[in-house]
Amino acid sequence: MSIEITGIGKRFGDFVALDDVSVRIPTGQLTALLGPSGGGKSTLLRIIAGLEHADEGTVEIDGVDATHVRPQRRDVGFVFQHYAAFKHLSVYRNVAFGLEIRKRSKAEVRERVTELLELVHLEQFADRLPSQLSGGQRQRMALARALAVEPKVLLLDEPFGALDAKVRRELRDWLRRLHDEVRVTTVFVTHDQEEALEVADEIVVINDGRIEQVGTPDDLYDRPANDFVMRFLGPVTRLGPDLVRPHDLELHPGEVDGAVAGEVSRVVRVGFEVRVEVTAADQVVLVTLTRTQFLALGVDVGSPVWVSPAAGAPTVAAVGPAPGDRSLVPG
């Protein structure tokens, strides 16, 4: 049940949401559409679902052109960020909805709904109303509801965005396990790179309506294609003309071939991590070391040091902000 997207373009008035987007989403995998807010990923997801119409391009689901097919006919399960629970129906009736529409027998509906409620651990809430559930429970119900009709593809639009941090982490983990069990082609949208890195088999990075890179979490982290992807997926700092990860930099107390000379300007210790800011020429470079490494160096604020990237560390030519940029966090 793969999805093939070709040349999709979408505009809202003057705003270009998607610009000539093409990507192939493989069968049975858990794929993340990752990117900053407003970048176009939700729009793309909704176009796949049929909830939005693309201005140009095609969508193929399982080899069949679905570009002009109504959402009802696409056999695609959709989970919304704010659950879209049927407020006037019980949890049981919510999950049963798709089956009732398809006129399945009562016995069949009962069997399937019970199976799903057990899968998402909501059996004892079957007769409750959605308003009586917590956010996390509502989202699990929404998932059960979408899975009830055995869709070819499961789409989730920032499914954990409305939940608090702890619940989000639990459900993230739970989604991964669920996918391993159910094995439906799944696409989910998120702006949280940690979430994408942790859960997805493959990540599609979308920014400003365009695809920046497609690859496994390792691919993206270790071999970022450009400045944006590198910044978005992890901490970066600037050394000379390049972006490099702070924990990929080495500090030397004495001069070393190819290393940049500088002076330690600030030392911040956070638990086992030590963040050292080194002023080198016209830049402030951030180097992250473990406590042990730092103590072994024997340097402190004011000490002269030499900075070089570790062997094989991924670097990317920096684009944008001038020297002095010491991005600590992605984006």
Binding site: A49, G50, L51, R70, P71, Q72, R73, V76, G77, F78, F80, H82, A84, A85, F86, K87, H88, F97, G98, I101, R102, A142, R145, A146, A148, V149
Partner: peptide, 25 residues
């Protein structure tokens, strides 16, 4: 419009969505 969209994604046509979701709301 989300509840109605959810109903569509689950296979409900316009009339079924109206009857089961919009009207009760």
């Amino acid at each position: 419009v989300e509840q109605e969209q959810a109903a569509h994604s689950l296979g409900a046509g316009a009339l079924a969505t109206f009857r089961r979701i919009t009207l009760p709301t």
